[in-house]
Design a protein around this nucleic acid. Structure first.
Lengths: 334, 334
DNA sequence: TTGAAAGCGCTAACAA
DNA sequence: TTGTTAGCGCTTTCAA
């Protein structure tokens, strides 16, 4: 494997000169540079980023920590789209991406900062962490630059990107209200997600704005899974037959609620309107197709990566970014 | 950031001893070891993998090269499931995963081996490459250990994992034949995929086994996309109204064909049976739910990673692994 | 059982 | 414009 030493020898100059030439410094004779470049190409040289990282104390590497990237959880491709966005931005800006995963127990033994420091990543993006995840506390305590996705914690070295979940939920509920619904249920996600609190807030605000009473009995938890949401839906529909619409804090849960409606003998959307959240891939294909609040998952990742790199290159401080949502009207609500 | 030097100083020993203690060598006094370990923990030490990699010439890092991981392509989560499998195995065996992406033009400028050597990955997994991808030739020429997914190239340093695509396609077509179909169309993927050739072969063999004529007119290309498949389906159905079944070489294409059937006024499965391939997430949710040939995408990734690491650790030579498929009967064919 | 010293491939003061 | 030298944090002979 060719090193700058080899090039130096072949060109009859010092390694310093080679390093300078290769890195585009101005203080090297144009002739020498050309010669060095030629030889480098001839010898099929690639720089050793390990060596470079060691001396520069920068690896041009971003770590991404995703929870729940395992056999069962690929049902919504939320994670994948975020990852695609991160990947796109990172490669545009000439960084590399290393994937940490927290699926195995093995890695739980390592602390967050251990994970990061071992790999000498310049910064980290966290996605899918629960609000009570032990890693999270560490993130804030450590001074490793970090962007969180959908977790509103910020400091000198940590920022986050999220969507406007309050407004998103509001949009969904307002849409139902405008269609004449008065008794609107909510199947929310679990409490360990920040977005759950926000979406609950949006739900309540929309009702209040319209002069409707918030009824705690109409609110159930679906734990972000299809199965739990189905149970929650069944419960809600049985105990409160006056419900004509249910807003779900995720599409997957909306799918579960629709199942429960069918089981109870209600047709969607004729007898029960259902609105989801996320606009996952399945939303357009399920029957009926899901009316939902879309969020741009690719952008979530892309912007997180972009802000992180800005931060690393000192182009900006830790940023807080909020993306917009959009109501997608399909056929599950009317 | 703590280094072994700091530990050495604190423990009153040499860095050599610290290194040996930390790496579990036997030739270090138990007392000294304990002392060193304690201090390391106290100082919150993490080894610098860059430095280690530099001297060891091993990074314990696997690169994964995926093509088409971008904004539009997240429609089938094939890639994501493979990635999840790779990730799972890699973290179990205590390696790290770096993601190369070939989406941007920028990286096309770098050759495959440049990409790998710069990052000093110990091995690579390639997924989603077309058969005429320029990278592919390099893979074989270079001696970087590599596992391919769904591309049957092997050598001393490269192996692959794939499913039995001939048999898979056969299973689909046999199922149709058993249901009484005689005029069976094929919407295949593009020619740049190895699997296309295999699935075509399976299609033909199944027909021949049953004593049915292969009719070239019944075969069209859907280019692995929903849109192209819809066009192909429309063409096929208009020109050959005698077709009662179409086998599609991917689920996404099956979705397209079903659309075309609806457009032409044919109901699925009453008037046209459709079978897909892959068993992607959507398959179970589309209407009608897709009868399809399932392949275990997670395992595809997991096994590739596992074989690669075996190879790196010299537990085995480059392997060739073939996974089984399974016919999943749903409602799009009868 | 321990330490001194060399070196992995690279960058960066400093000097010339 | 170029070279000398030191050093990033680690592993590994070799010698004690």
């Amino acid at each position: 494997m060719t090193t700058i030493k080899d090039i130096a020898k072949a060109a009859g100059v010092s390694v310093t000169t080679v390093s300078r030439a290769l890195n585009g410094y101005s203080d090297v004779n144009e002739k020498t540079r050309r010669k060095i470049m030629d030889i480098a190409k001839q010898l099929n040289y690639s720089p050793n980023t390990l060596a470079r990282g060691l001396v520069m104390k920068k690896s041009r590497t971003i770590g991404m920590l995703v929870s729940g990237m395992n056999r069962v959880s690929s049902k919504d491709n939320f994670t994948f789209e975020v990852l695609s966005g991160v990947n796109e931005c990172i490669s545009e800006r000439d960084y590399d991406l290393v994937l940490f995963s927290t699926t195995t127990t093995k890695q739980r033994e390592k602390t967050y900062s251990q994970l990061c420091r071992e790999r000498r990543v310049d910064g980290v993006i966290l996605q899918g962490m629960k609000i009570d995840d032990p890693y999270l506390k560490e993130v804030v305590e450590s001074d490793i630059p970090c962007m969180l996705i959908d977790i509103p914690i910020s400091s000198k070295s940590v920022g986050y990107v999220t969507t406007d979940n309050v407004l998103g939920a509001k949009r969904a509920v307002r849409h139902l209200i405008q269609s004449g619904h008065k008794n609107i249920g909510l199947v929310n996600g679990h409490d360990q997600a920040y977005v759950s609190k926000q979406r609950l807030k949006g739900y309540m605000e929309a009702l209040q704005e319209a002069g409707l009473q918030v009824n705690g009995q109409y609110i159930a938890s679906g734990d972000f899974t299809e199965e739990k949401a189905e149970e929650a839906g069944t419960m809600l529909l049985k105990e409160h037959p006056e419900l004509t619409a249910i807003f779900c804090a995720s599409d997957l849960m909306a799918l579960g609620v629709i199942k429960s409606a069918k089981a109870v003998g209600l047709s969607v959307p004729e007898q029960l309107s259902v609105i989801g959240y996320d606009n996952i891939l399945l939303a357009a294909y399920s029957s009926p197709p899901l009316t939902t609040i879309a969020q741009n998952k690719f952008d979530l990742g892309y912007k997180a990566a972009n802000a992180l790199i800005d931060m690393l290159e000192e182009k900006s401080d830790a940023q807080v970014i909020t993306l917009e949502t959009e109501l997608i009207i399909r056929e599950s609500a009317k």
